[in-house]
Nucleic acid binder design. Sequence first.
DNA 1: TCCGATCAACGAAAACTTTCGTATGTCTGT
DNA 2: ACAGACATACGAAAGTTTTCGTTGATCGGA
Lengths: 123, 123
Amino acid sequence: MSKRPTDTELEILRVLWASGPSTVRGVHDVLSQDRNLGYTTVLKMLQVMHEKGLVVRDTSQRSHIYTPVESEKTVQGSLIADLVDRAFSGSPSRLVMAALSERPADPEELAAIRALLDDLEES
Amino acid sequence: MSKRPTDTELEILRVLWASGPSTVRGVHDVLSQDRNLGYTTVLKMLQVMHEKGLVVRDTSQRSHIYTPVESEKTVQGSLIADLVDRAFSGSPSRLVMAALSERPADPEELAAIRALLDDLEES
DNA sequence: TCCGATCAACGAAAACTTTCGTATGTCTGT
DNA sequence: ACAGACATACGAAAGTTTTCGTTGATCGGA
């Protein structure tokens, strides 16, 4: 099935999720704020991602418009599932506990997590 | 600094964590149960991992013995930190919530998570 | 002591990822 | 209509990861 996106692919997907469907230039503008990256590099990446089926594109205009195929939540879910498989023996709760120990979350976040736990226990 | 281990490197680390310090043959035996992998492939991987500083080795015997440099917990922590950065805008709690929603944990696990939350809130 | 099994080392091929230069076509304003 | 700006496509180089064949050394048993 679908492999997980590579590092740069994920970077680009994040721009698309945040900005909505975008042209190569749009993605490049955002990415260039943080790091040096040629325009054609982004173009090539998006072409590759299109071949892989990670994005679809509208070519009716001269500047093509790229849209992610999967939602952010979906990809986050598969990245987690992938990491759980590769590093946590398939146990999501072990990952959760490791993540909680890793960096202290502020009280507000902890409350949100508790609320989610309550939800999960009801069903 | 240190990049995250690649997929195969992580697979090998997991064997070392589970079995303790091992020879190439030991690692290969475990890995071959699940997938096809030549002996010299594992050897080469361990040599590369040694160059990268992921493992140390004892060469006093003919069969060298490899030991991970970092503990499983440490690597799990950096993998999580890495994923949080790359896919969750640096917010661990978002990853936690996504992980909890991903697969239903059984009640026992949920209780363990609650206990951990209690601990975190005390300090 | 000789043979087969086992080992580490090395090099290189294949696959994948990331990067960008160049070619070429199209649009816009003067 | 022309020039400059801007777009896609293509190919290829460089880096990384994964895989394994071959070579030569060493060990252990017949």
